[in-house]
Design a protein around this nucleic acid. Structure first.
Lengths: 352, 352
DNA sequence: CTGAAAGCGCTAACAA
DNA sequence: TTGTTAGCGCTTTCAG
């Protein structure tokens, strides 16, 4: 019996994890041989291979991923930072990411920033410490210089480490990115409303200082302007990108004196809130007021009336983002703006 | 200049990650000292501490979590296995888990089994390899002996490693668990329907061989039986725990000849599908048919008519599950069945 | 208070 | 084809 075997068997039988050494001893081979059969792609005598496989099975052995990560360059883990899992928009993106990560055997570390810029930066650091194989940051960007600077720092630190980082849901000049045509979608929706005869259109905006808010609002206003419709400032309210944010903003609008025949909401969740507020005020959709959303999250086809919105390929965005990340360090930023399209349902009609 | 410094600076400036050694050299101290200031709780001269902190900042140094995990007993990572992130029931649970994990500085690895038992087992193994500090398995159990056996094996392997595993959404005898009162909730709902005068109640069940399906169905049938109402077999259909599963099952029921005045759906998503199928058939809810759901996922308050359902504290279940896991290895299984309560909205009325 | 040294569990030369 | 060896980057005795 070799010394190593002895020293191992002396210890308490308690909490010691099974190591590659235990498997080697159990199978009567060296750790290197065990490693070779586990990794494959290296010649090992059939008899030894069988012995090792049996030992692995009998001991219920699983390699320590950290020891492996320390020696190798890849960890088999990817990091994902989103605003909030409970938001269906992000849940869909994560589902897409998971799907391709699973297909390539990678695990995903999911981080919720809860729309706190500092928290996003902190997660980026933690993911860097984890030496993840790729990171995808989903959701619109915070438009604030200190955030921008901190993000830029993380991006370059990550690059220095050789870790690809890809943005999902925001455009970018310096890193890989996949995002929806926010501006184009807003234009399509606004044109749709205009064609139906609406002129007094309330805008339920997202929070200021978000790239998503800016882009969608810009598209909306540009079309309005080019159609010669001036936006009444008292018909604009902003709120969080949530159902309650849309609800509050709409209540605020309703409390004012201005009248409107349609609501342009920054996303579906806010549109749902608008629908609730309108309903509470006794206003019917679309008979009294028309409402449009943005994103086409799964639930909006089940509300009544069905919400007319623009479809953003959330799941596909997630898939593409992680595929780009997993494909390796960037050879010049890969930028993909995904098209969106109008989905007409029942929440829009012509004003009386 | 010390040898170590020299050897480091000889290499290419390229892809080398910054290590604790680089920081030590930069600050003119030993790696041990750097480690001590980084970890805190150990006396270090004020001057050296300052030097180290500056070096860390200047180098943008972040410790390699894997090297750390290899030396320490904890990894600061927890594992979570759910059925599907895109399902709001699970998204809520994950949000709760994330919340407390973040508060204790832990990262979460999220795994989607997509309701595939083999996939769940495989993830359990991977999480074991990651030496996560705790794992929570959310969602109902697959009622099948080979799964049960494999799960039991994983649980004991995890225990041997000293990793707490807690079930979230299913009861258990051998491990820690937090779950909703599925049976009680089904009873409350059924009684509610009975009190409104319904007797011909269709049951839109979940998939067979799921603990959740069994428990909810059992509660429903028990109340029916004790009220002397016999369930018409042609009024029972099962489907996946999704909106489409509920839709298909309801379509199937509608295609049959049997008539019913209410639908008892196994969860909210299936109830939404039922609502859609009913609407398509020209049936009004609740005037022609009443519908109830289960879980009270966030969206159901926004459908029209608002869905009457039973509220399951999803987020709180997630919080509790991870708290139990993070609290350490079990001192006898901690079992918590959380109460549920009826939420009356507008989807139920008395039959004509 | 500080540094040297050992070693966590694994893989990849390098020898044999 | 196989084993021995040298670390990956960190923390933690153990001396000083």
């Amino acid at each position: 019996m070799k010394p190593s075997t002895v020293s191992r068997s002396i210890g308490r039988t308690s909490r010691a994890n099974t190591t590659i050494r235990d498997v080697a001893n159990h199978a009567g081979v060296s750790p290197a041989t065990v490693s070779r059969v586990l990794n494959g792609g290296y010649p090992v005598a059939e008899i030894k291979r069988t012995q090792v496989e049996r030992a692995v099975r009998e001991l219920g052995y699983i390699r320590n991923a950290h020891a492996q990560a320390l020696r190798r360059t890849s960890t088999g883990v990817v990091g994902v930072i989103i605003h909030d899992v409970a938001d269906p928009f992000f849940a869909e993106i994560v589902a897409g990411i998971q799907e391709v990560a699973a297909a390539s055997g990678a695990l995903v570390v999911l981080c919720n920033s809860l729309r706190n810029p500092d928290s996003e930066i902190r997660y980026l650091q933690m993911l860097r410490g984890q030496r993840v194989d790729a990171v995808v940051v989903a959701g619109g960007a915070f438009e604030n210089t200190s955030y921008r600077r901190a993000l830029q720092q993380q991006v370059s630190d990550l690059k220095r480490q050789g870790t690809p980082i890809v943005m999902c849901g925001r455009s970018s000049r310096s890193t890989d990115a996949v995002w929806p045509d926010n501006r184009g979608g807003a234009e399509v929706l606004t044109r749709h409303l205009l064609e139906r005869g609406h002129r007094a259109i309330a805008e339920v905006m997202g929070p200021p200082n978000f790239s998503t808010t800016k882009e969608r609002s810009a598209g909306h206003r540009a079309v309005l302007a080019s159609a010669g419709v001036t936006q009444d400032p008292s018909l604009v309210a902003s709120g969080h990108f949530t159902r309650d944010g849309g609800y509050e903003a709409t209540r605020y609008l309703l409390a004012g004196h201005a009248r409107f025949t349609a609501v342009f909401a920054a996303n579906d969740l806010m549109a749902m809130g608008a629908l609730a507020a309108l309903r509470e005020s006794g206003l019917r959709v679309p008979d009294d007021v028309s409402v449009i959303g943005f994103d086409d999250v799964p639930i909006v086809r089940d509300v009544v009336p069905g919400l007319t919105t623009v479809s953003v390929p959330m799941r596909e965005m997630g898939r593409r983002a992680i595929r780009i990340g997993l494909a390796g360090a960037d050879r010049g930023p890969r930028l993909e703006m995904l098209p969106v399209y109008l989905v007409e349902r029942e929440s829009v009609s012509s004003p009386a």
